[in-house]
Amino acid sequence: MDAPEWACLLDVLDLIKDKHDGTLAYRKSCRMMICGSCGMRMDGRAVLACKERMKPIVDAGHVPVISAMGNMPVLKDLVVDMSPFWGKIRSVKPWLDPGYDEVAEKERIVSQQQMNVIHKEALCIMCGCCVSECNSMEADPDFMGPAALAKGFRFVGDARDQADVERLNTLNEEHGIWDCTRCYFCNERCPKGVDPRDAIAKLGAESVKQGVDHDMGAKHAKWFIRSTETTGWLRETELVPKTQGIIEAIKQTGFALKLARKGKVPPPFPPHVAADVKEARALRELVGEQGRDGALGIVQGEHALGRIEFTEEAGARENAPEIQPGVEPPPAEG
């Protein structure tokens, strides 16, 4: 089959549909990576068909396998049923709750810095690529999933929204943020740089900050932090009761004893303090010093990581535009 050099996967599918098989079914519209119609899998990874150039693949002599996205029922060929996807989006009450009904006379005053907090999440085109790849979703089809959770943060992080705590409570429920396995597939496969896993981390941080910590996941995270300041060790014997509760912990004693026999668990008494506990404490202080916690802390953490990475690459990323608080993203025209 002949295709022009510039063809992307979507062009190739069009050629197949035109010239070989008119029954081939797939969704498309904008062909410029903005409408989110054309999510599908190429060699098992979720992509936007209009974003994948075929020339390098052909040059490499590779014949890719195209299939429908995962974690969603297939209706025909490459068309999946997106209704569960939209149902989850709806479950996060995805609309601004300003706390009042009447429309203000003018715009509300919000700084660019405040807007930048949700810049990445606002980029989401609802293509479903992240959901297609989500490991948690595979195990638990009721897991809210990366796209809906990112949408959740879009509102939790919006300075104009007045329903944060209510939203965090919903997002902390079963199938919510703490059920994510942190596999990072969503970050890796999102074609728009939304980084849904980061949004989930921000939701976690914000939950703890706002005192919404009834979930095991939140307790687990809190205990981790506490350990850094006390012993510098992760003390499973305390971690389990602190996160899962006493009864659960007793049920797991057998397992714990087995671990202890293999030397995997330090005995609970006397508290065993790590030799390098100072380092753990210093690290904790360093993070604390950054002065902002909750969701904003995570954004900052990302920037810090970005900077480390960047010096390591000896300036390779220097010119890549990055959204920074207070600096406007470059505008464009259309």
Partner: peptide, 14 residues
């Protein structure tokens, strides 16, 4: 097509 897939979404400038 689904509402958010509409081509209004492609407008860049303002």
């Amino acid at each position: 097509i689904h509402p958010v897939r509409s081509h209004s979404g492609a407008a860049e400038g303002g």
